[in-house]
Design a protein around this nucleic acid. Sequence first.
DNA 1: AATGAATGAGTGTTCATTCAT
DNA 2: AATGAATGAACACTCATTCAT
Lengths: 209, 209, 209, 209
Amino acid sequence: MPRNSEASQKKIMEVAVKIFARKGFDGARVDEIAREAKVNKALIYYYFKSKSLILEEIFRIFNDESSKLIISFFQDQAELEDSEWLITFFDAFMTFLEERKDILKIMITESLKSNENEPPIFGFMNLIFQQDIEKYIQSMKKRGFHMSDDKEQMMVTEFFTDIIPILTYVVFKDKWSRLFGVDKERLKSMFFEAYSSTHLAYHLGQKPK
Amino acid sequence: MPRNSEASQKKIMEVAVKIFARKGFDGARVDEIAREAKVNKALIYYYFKSKSLILEEIFRIFNDESSKLIISFFQDQAELEDSEWLITFFDAFMTFLEERKDILKIMITESLKSNENEPPIFGFMNLIFQQDIEKYIQSMKKRGFHMSDDKEQMMVTEFFTDIIPILTYVVFKDKWSRLFGVDKERLKSMFFEAYSSTHLAYHLGQKPK
Amino acid sequence: MPRNSEASQKKIMEVAVKIFARKGFDGARVDEIAREAKVNKALIYYYFKSKSLILEEIFRIFNDESSKLIISFFQDQAELEDSEWLITFFDAFMTFLEERKDILKIMITESLKSNENEPPIFGFMNLIFQQDIEKYIQSMKKRGFHMSDDKEQMMVTEFFTDIIPILTYVVFKDKWSRLFGVDKERLKSMFFEAYSSTHLAYHLGQKPK
Amino acid sequence: MPRNSEASQKKIMEVAVKIFARKGFDGARVDEIAREAKVNKALIYYYFKSKSLILEEIFRIFNDESSKLIISFFQDQAELEDSEWLITFFDAFMTFLEERKDILKIMITESLKSNENEPPIFGFMNLIFQQDIEKYIQSMKKRGFHMSDDKEQMMVTEFFTDIIPILTYVVFKDKWSRLFGVDKERLKSMFFEAYSSTHLAYHLGQKPK
DNA sequence: AATGAATGAGTGTTCATTCAT
DNA sequence: AATGAATGAACACTCATTCAT
């Protein structure tokens, strides 16, 4: 390993994520990535063919990791108690996303642009439901969760009232906390309260408090 | 080729909204706005001091119009029956947003960037709750909606499980419909079903079906 | 005509010709063209979409002008005496080329590259023989010049032993004169002697002296 | 992947010649040479101090080889019959150049640039006349060829109506054959016909047919 | 002898903005 | 009110060259 190939490459991607999140992909400057990553700008092009391909690589890795997480929860942890499973899953998912909140920002921003590509956020959603949707629905029902039998309805409900609120919370919590002067822990528990009393309540079929 | 101030100015803003939505503010080019609006590029600078100020003007007008809509519903239409009021409000709000979906895209994108400004989406939310939050809560409760007495909690719930899903639906419905091959009317009713069975159910304190 | 569009455009092309000739198209720098033409670099791109298109425009104009010259000699000046016509033509052609020697340098250089385009020098040759080759041959023969009846042979002979020596003389005469310390007038008459005693002698069917 | 000095070095030069010819020296990329020669880019700099020095080495070797060829014909083969000598020389010279046509392309291209160096094509010409020009002229005359007694005139005639047509034929024959759909053998004989009936005719003092 | 990583100085091109009319 | 011309500062990307091993 002459010099430190992997370290440089990793550093570039980390900084790129930060700056893409901060300024948007189009607002980000390759020069700035180089400066902040403390590497020569040409080195970025030594590892990545273009600015866009840095982004694609970021998404690719994110999708890989997401896949693994999802699979592990529907396969490996299948033996957990239902209530325990839910909490474990929610927590793990939340932690996973919070650690990648910059990527989520980029993902949302890029999803809103009007190009021909599939919005990356749809790709992410598809990952979550990647396995046989039938199987997914059955496995959730078996666990006692109320789910629509209509697959299309199920996806709409899960996307707009589950995934989206969670992602939105993750990408906006810092700003919310700062601008409204709310402690982060309290904000988190308020969000969980909101999520429980709407989306979770729906799944559990309980009257919300 | 418009030869009068207002027409040109309006055309510029309309086209700017479209292009900012399509490519993002940073991805948009003043040249392209000029070309598509069929005005000379320098004319844009005759009416707007800079590219950013076009955006600010867009947001300003949007906020003005939003304000008016909100106020009208809490003041002018106060005499409507409760159930009728809710539906009328939801429909009017939805129509209003759908007509401005491009602005919403821009608003979300710009809100995600990390600059010192207040994210425009928070500004939009504040507009909705602009009048005395107390008064708002009371007025909702009076109408029979379950609302948290905790003002902070109320805002969190309304933002992440009401406003956000609605905005997200509006900005993604075209892509969703196209990519998943779902008819727009059906998508709308599925979204309404999702919204009702989670957020509305919470307000109405009913068991969701 | 706000400011001086045409002047700038013309200046850019003139300087581009000079620099492309001096350094080759690939060795030339747009920056240098801008500097030497005393225009802003971006102005170059205001008039020409790319560096390559500057070159294409240069060739286009050169070809137009060549066409006109050729046509004028085969049509307008058809009434001249034969010997007079030849000398007039040769002189006019020579003057025309000497005034455009930089373009010829570029043309030769670009013709040698291996891309899919037709080498510009072939395009130039085709211009010369553009009118019905038959007609051309007949018109030359009528004037008493020996010409091959085989069209392909005729083109080969004219290209390699007429056009090419002339072009080569034009593009190398300055360097020759400087490096071998030969006066330009003398060089010219030596070249004419060489040309007469080989190519012209062939056409005239005379024993060279 | 060659593991020995000479093979790598030779491969680099061969590929460099090909690419310099294809794209011009300035249009050629060291990266591309490395890729096509299947050697590491840094290895090129291990053998050659710079891109320019690759070119200089190419020319140096070409000139050496040319020298040898010329000398052999004026010394070693001096005992051949005159007519035989001429044909043998022309054929050998032609073959030699055809095998090096890529170098000739580079030579012409580089000769056209305006730098202070002696154009390599003049260097090549000087090689041919390197020995005492007097001696050369006498030796040609002795063989019965008509030659100008004026040394300067002789060089002009030989350069522009002998060397240049031959070089030009060699560097353009492939393109000519392809673009005009002429068989290469036929093209060669047409060129020889053109050359004979102009330049050779001059030397032989015969009326061209 | 050979290589993957790294770099400084460019290089063509773009862009928001301004000028002159 | 409107426009074609002009500009300075970037910008993504490239390239010859060197380093460290």
